[in-house]
Design a protein around this nucleic acid. Sequence first.
DNA 1: TAAAAATATAATAATGTTTGCATATAAATA
DNA 2: TATTTATATGCAAACATTATTATATTTTTA
Lengths: 113, 113
Amino acid sequence: MIPPAKRIELLKVIAHPVRIKILEDLTQGVKCVSDFEESLDISQPNISQHLSLLRSHGSVDYFIDGRLKCYFLREPFIPELLELLKKEYDGDIPAPACCPVTKKGTYPGERRR
Amino acid sequence: MIPPAKRIELLKVIAHPVRIKILEDLTQGVKCVSDFEESLDISQPNISQHLSLLRSHGSVDYFIDGRLKCYFLREPFIPELLELLKKEYDGDIPAPACCPVTKKGTYPGERRR
DNA sequence: TAAAAATATAATAATGTTTGCATATAAATA
DNA sequence: TATTTATATGCAAACATTATTATATTTTTA
């Protein structure tokens, strides 16, 4: 079964260094826009744009409190993805023992890298 | 700790419907380019382009057997990601009980959505 | 009520991604 | 050796993403 288009879209939206950082920050708790101004070193409008994109994809939402907007994580897929991103692996998947098992059958050429 | 730039780059490369499908196919075993021609419904040059991008990021590699190129998964992060992508969640993360806990202190405005 | 603070929006330029198409390469076969 | 098969490459057009700048909106405070 192939992951549905929506989930792939979401993945694409998340896959940006600034947005990853925003989401990482949000796993620590609620943050308002000016908090991100401290941790992100990009302009305020740019932060708002990234937040707006994340919100439009349901990744985050906010409460309004006075003149602050207090953002929080909404999409349960995200914390697990962030965990996976940090995971370390030792070595690659081993190359398959022999090839090819394919619709075309086996070809006579010498196998090599 | 923030996932390093390389891993985010990789995520971005993976986050494309065709490439997800290619990687899904490869979790089933070795595939050559013409196998993808059957399962993907895009042109052969386009398939080669996607494979080439995946290879340049270390996601896949191939053996040559005759005139076939037999692609296989190389990046151990990928199978786990594909699993996670298929995972279902029921409902969003619950909104935090109260806000805001921020550098600016608590603002007097009424909290609301 | 005017000014300040916090955030958002719009327009734009720069950049990057994706695909389509034509062509190239390399190996196998006739 | 000419043809066919399998795959790759190069280039350009279409499209999407990103950051920047200026400005707008909303709320609070003076």
